[in-house]
Lab assay of single mutants.
Amino acid sequence: GIDPFTGEAIAKFNFNGDTQVEMSFRKGERITLLRQVDENWYEGRIPGTSRQGIFPITYVDVIKRPL
Rank of each mutant, 00 (worst) to 15 (best):
V60T: 04
D38K: 06
D38L: 06
T6V: 10
Y59A: 12
T6S: 11
I46A: 02
D18Q: 14
T19C: 14
P4L: 15
G1N: 12
T32H: 08
F15G: 00
E43Y: 14
T58W: 14
G44K: 00
S50W: 08
Q20L: 13
F55E: 00
T32G: 05
G48S: 06
S24Y: 04
R65H: 15
G44V: 01
F25K: 01
G1M: 11
I10L: 09
L67G: 15
L33E: 04
T58S: 13
V21K: 13
K12T: 07
G48M: 07
I54N: 05
V21R: 13
I31N: 00
T32V: 11
S24G: 07
F13P: 00
F15Q: 00
V60C: 06
E22I: 04
T19M: 10
E39H: 10
F25G: 01
E22N: 06
Q52H: 13
S50M: 12
F5P: 08
Q20C: 15
K64N: 06
F15M: 02
R26T: 14
E43K: 05
K64E: 11
I57S: 11
G17R: 05
P56K: 04
T32C: 09
G53K: 00
E22G: 06
F15E: 00
Q20D: 14
K12N: 08
I2R: 10
D18Y: 13
N40I: 14
R45Y: 14
G1P: 13
R35Q: 09
F55G: 01
Y59C: 14
Q52A: 09
I57D: 06
I10M: 07
R51M: 04
F5L: 13
G48D: 08
E29H: 02
I54S: 03
D18I: 15
I63C: 08
T58N: 13
V37F: 08
V60E: 00
Q36S: 07
D38T: 07
N16L: 11
R45N: 08
D18S: 12
E22F: 10
P66C: 10
D18L: 15
E29S: 03
P66Q: 08
G7M: 09
G28H: 05
N40R: 10
N40E: 13
R35D: 04
V60I: 13
V62N: 03
V62W: 06
N14F: 05
N16I: 13
Y59Q: 06
T32K: 08
V62C: 05
E22W: 05
V37P: 03
E29R: 02
F13N: 09
Q36P: 07
G1A: 13
Q20S: 15
G1F: 09
S24M: 04
D38Y: 09
N16S: 11
F5S: 12
P4D: 14
L34R: 03
K64H: 05
T32E: 15
P4V: 12
Y59G: 03
Q20P: 14
E29Q: 06
T58C: 15
F55P: 01
V21D: 14
R51F: 04
V21E: 14
R45H: 10
P56F: 02
G17L: 03
R30Q: 08
E29F: 02
L34A: 03
F5R: 12
I10V: 12
V37H: 06
I31E: 00
L67V: 15
G7F: 09
K12M: 09
E29M: 04
R35H: 09
T49E: 06
A9L: 05
F55D: 00
Y42G: 03
P47S: 09
I10T: 06
K27Y: 07
I57E: 08
A9P: 00
V37E: 03
A9H: 02
N40G: 11
A11Q: 00
I2C: 15
V60G: 02
F13K: 11
Y42Q: 02
Q36M: 08
G28L: 03
F55V: 09
P4F: 13
Q52S: 09
Y42N: 01
T19E: 11
R26D: 10
K64S: 04
D3Y: 10
V21T: 11
A11Y: 01
R26I: 14
A11S: 04
T6Y: 12
G1Q: 12
